[in-house]
Design a protein around this nucleic acid. Structure first.
Length: 154
DNA sequence: GCCAACGTTGGC
DNA sequence: GCCAACGTTGGC
């Protein structure tokens, strides 16, 4: 089992949206980055725990936990010309983009902010892309040690 | 295959 | 809203 962190802008799709979805489950569509795509397509497995991270907002940070409930499958929104993340280069015969389904598990007791996580960038979290400058990866693996360390901060 | 131009991400 | 960092595109 692997642990993960996934970023989303709360104004676009935040943890409140996931909580309000049917079955508190939704598909994580719109990822248009190959590294992130590969992780969803090849590595994320049902039952994997995932941190929900709010990006591009007043207080970026980890706000909750979800779990993978469906492993990688084709992101059909790439085929829809009216969809925001339409990609004409993704051919239904040879799909380029994939997604997973995630289900809400719980809110963290508080927002564990990026600022706070960065305090540990030179020690426990040194290998965590999130706390490194210029990182734009929207899905990243988290080691079990990092996962537990972060939860200890809660 | 190089690399400049361009678009996007995301913190601040 | 600014802008640094980064990924992608496309000309050559």
């Amino acid at each position: 089992m692997n642990h993960w962190l996934m970023k989303s802008e709360p104004d676009v799709f935040g943890i409140e949206h996931l909580k309000a979805a049917p079955n508190q489950t939704d598909h994580w569509d719109g990822v248009r980055n190959y590294q992130a795509r590969n992780m969803m397509r090849d590595e994320m497995q049902i039952g994997d725990p995932v941190f929900f991270y709010h990006s591009n907002c007043a207080e970026p940070g980890i706000v909750g936990i979800m779990q993978v409930v469906k492993s990688g499958y084709v992101d059909h929104t790439a085929f829809d010309p009216d969809a925001q993340y339409y990609d004409p280069k993704s051919d239904p015969e040879k799909p380029r983009w994939y997604m997973v389904d995630v289900q809400y598990v719980r809110d963290l007791k508080r927002n564990i902010t990026l600022k706070e996580l960065k305090n540990h960038a030179e020690t426990t979290l040194t290998d965590m892309p999130l706390v490194r400058k210029g990182n734009r990866l929207s899905i990243m693996p988290i080691t079990e040690a990092q996962w537990h360390f972060i939860l200890e901060l809660e």
